[in-house]
Amino acid sequence: MKNQASILTRRDFVRGTASAIAVGGTLVRASAAPARSATVVVVRDQKAMTEALSVNAAALNAMLEETVKRVTGAKDVKSAWLSLVGPKDRIGLVPTPHLNPTHDELVEAVKASLVAAGIPEGNIVMAQGRSASAIRECTALISLPGLKAHWLTGIGTVLKNYIMFSGNPSAYHEADSVKLGEIWSRPDVKGKTKLVLVDALRPLCDKGPQPDPRYMWPYKGLIAGVDPVAVESICLKIITEKRRALRGEPWPLSPPPLCVKAADVTHKLGVSDLAQIKVDAVGWNQEMLL
């Protein structure tokens, strides 16, 4: 067994150290930090999916446009995209490839919207699972994960979406998943993510990543922002509330999603404190779970 210093136990959470996180063998408490803030946009449309759970492309396109406008504050879609990326950028799209994959319709909608905004189609590449050199060539990344709980990491959405960029995914498995945030600080990745856009059309709140339809529901939403930790934290909130609704009592994720707080406290990747995150929600407001 590895040394005890690197172990975080259930007792640590019960002791009230849930705001602390174990990274690099020590418990790091969240210190009093300057006030920060982040905004996460949640756009939903009841018509985004049919009864048979097919995607309504028109509704999805409208949701996408609303989302990028709200994230950027731009008045039109073209201006919104061009405030995030430019025509000379080589843009890598990073969807979740399998096991509750990102809907193809969303990936295609993003691509089409970028092209319509003036981004040359040849400058848009699918970057998921690509080699380090391929990622190096990208000057901008748009992360497109699917929203899901994960049996090994609690949640397996935003932070985990870049695990293949590490070149050594097994180094981020099991207890080491707490370090997932550091991948975002790798030289080939750091600072390139211009938008995190989560496919929350039909999330999975338990037993992920393998699909289990008993725990999937048509949330019919997109969740987006430029702060990956803030977006992940709102995703976590939605998953947590859905689990509570299913059981009629708190049903905590197990194992707890340690990587989210660590991405904030240790890797300084963004804001995880819900009190510091403003949610800009619009559209269908039934069972928002926020």
């Binding site: 590895k2 172990i7 136990t9 259930r10 207890a175 707490v178 197990s254 194992p255």
Partner: peptide
């Protein structure tokens, strides 16, 4: 740990 989180190791 997926049934009852005990420890990271």
């Amino acid at each position: 740990n997926s049934v009852y989180f005990l420890a990271t190791r």
